[in-house]
């Protein structure tokens, strides 16, 4: 059995659901009443976008593009830590 049409058609059916959930995350980023809500939504958006990049490198048949997902996951975590550090330092008076 030929594997390429199977993988391509299933992934092409799954990709619009990914994009729809990204739009829902961005709605929470825009609406979010407080800063931690927005940061939490950006956090989940970045992790899911990293997974989406890995899936997309299977879909586009270019295996060396997978490294971007790893870098994005690490730096979105760093962004999370910056804002958490800012909020916590303001409370402690530093």
């Amino acid at each position: 059995m030929d594997l390429e049409p199977l993988v391509s058609s299933v992934l092409a059916a799954l990709i619009p659901a990914y994009v729809a959930s990204f739009l829902l995350y961005v709605v929470r980023v825009v609406k979010g009443p407080t800063i931690p809500d927005r940061v939490l939504a950006v956090d989940a958006l970045g992790y899911d976008l990293a997974a989406f990049m890995v899936v997309l490198s299977v879909f586009l048949k270019s295996p060396f593009m997978v490294v971007c997902g790893l870098a994005l996951a690490l730096w979105v975590y760093a962004f999370d830590i910056y804002v958490a550090k800012y909020l916590e330092a303001k409370e402690m008076g530093g």
Binding site: L70, A73, D80, V83, A84, K85, E88, K90, E91
Partner: peptide, 25 residues
């Protein structure tokens, strides 16, 4: 990437939750 993310996601959520609790944001 999946192994690394399994560690990082908890740590990031915990950090932002602790900061939001302590700063009453």
């Amino acid at each position: 990437s999946s192994l690394l993310l399994m560690i990082l996601a908890q740590a990031g959520s915990h950090a932002i939750a602790r900061a939001a609790y302590l700063s009453r944001e």
